[in-house]
Amino acid sequence: MVWLNTVIQGTMLGGLYAMFAIGLSLIFGVMKLVNIAHGDLIVLSAYLALVITQTMGVDPFVSLLIVVPIIATVGYLLQRGLFNRTLGDDLLPPILVSFGLSIIIQNGVLVAFSGDDRRLQAGPLEVASLRIGDTVAIGLLPLLQFVIAVAVIVVLHLLIRRTKTGRGLRAVSDDQAMAQVMGFNNRHMYGVAMALSLGITAVAGVLIAIRGNFDPSAGPARLIYGFEAVIIGGVGNIWGTLLGGIVLGVVQAIGGAIDPRFQILAGHLVFLLVLALRPSGLFGVKA
């Protein structure tokens, strides 16, 4: 029964990883961009939430109403002002520019907030839990976070499948040149994709900061978790990515239950295992 609890906890955590991952795979799908600074922008949104909760005295969940639009706008502007200039046949500029951005954000946050561990406070919700039977207990906070994660992913799915903007994003992703001929300004569409990507990850960034500590150097790990979830789930498959995040979360939880030092390593090892045995991902469609 201890194990059941561990698996449940891992699943809840995996929901957040899936949100990191979906942000990554959205921009990869639309403009073949991999943003190395993804994790640092996740951490930046946590710091933004920290400032808002402290100055305005609001709950972290309420702070999302401000954090998400701000980070989404930052994403749009970054794409238009920076990443759009790097797109082309050469794969080096986007990687190195986003790597440079990652270093800038990490050090910028370090200057502004020092290297201390921080955490967002959610009050009594943090300790509340739902008991099922005698042995299984689900923390209300992780449960709420998981529900939010799944809801965000469902909304994104509907947005991409059912709306005009989503149709445009899919068209741009399929054939950039023809999308242009059809009247899409690709540079704007890329900006929209980045805004969506970072909006989603800002939600995850704030949620995960209620649950565990963060510091200026926490970004790379978050980028890697998102990336691992994408590969484990199979590139380009939104539900596969959700499952990939859950697999990663569960593996980390089990690893951590065996030995706390083993938590992160267990996740990495499963990622490498998937890469070795099933490079198209556990739930991916073979290309």
């Binding site: 149709r167 899919r170 068209a171 023809m178 001929v181 059809m182």
Partner: peptide, 30 residues
Amino acid sequence: AHHRVDLGIALVPEGRRLFVSLTVEENLLI
């Protein structure tokens, strides 16, 4: 390029180049 369709030029490209992740009707709506 993306303003030219507004001015009244439309292209049926060589090799068709339809948007494969869109349905027939979605392609038309684009």
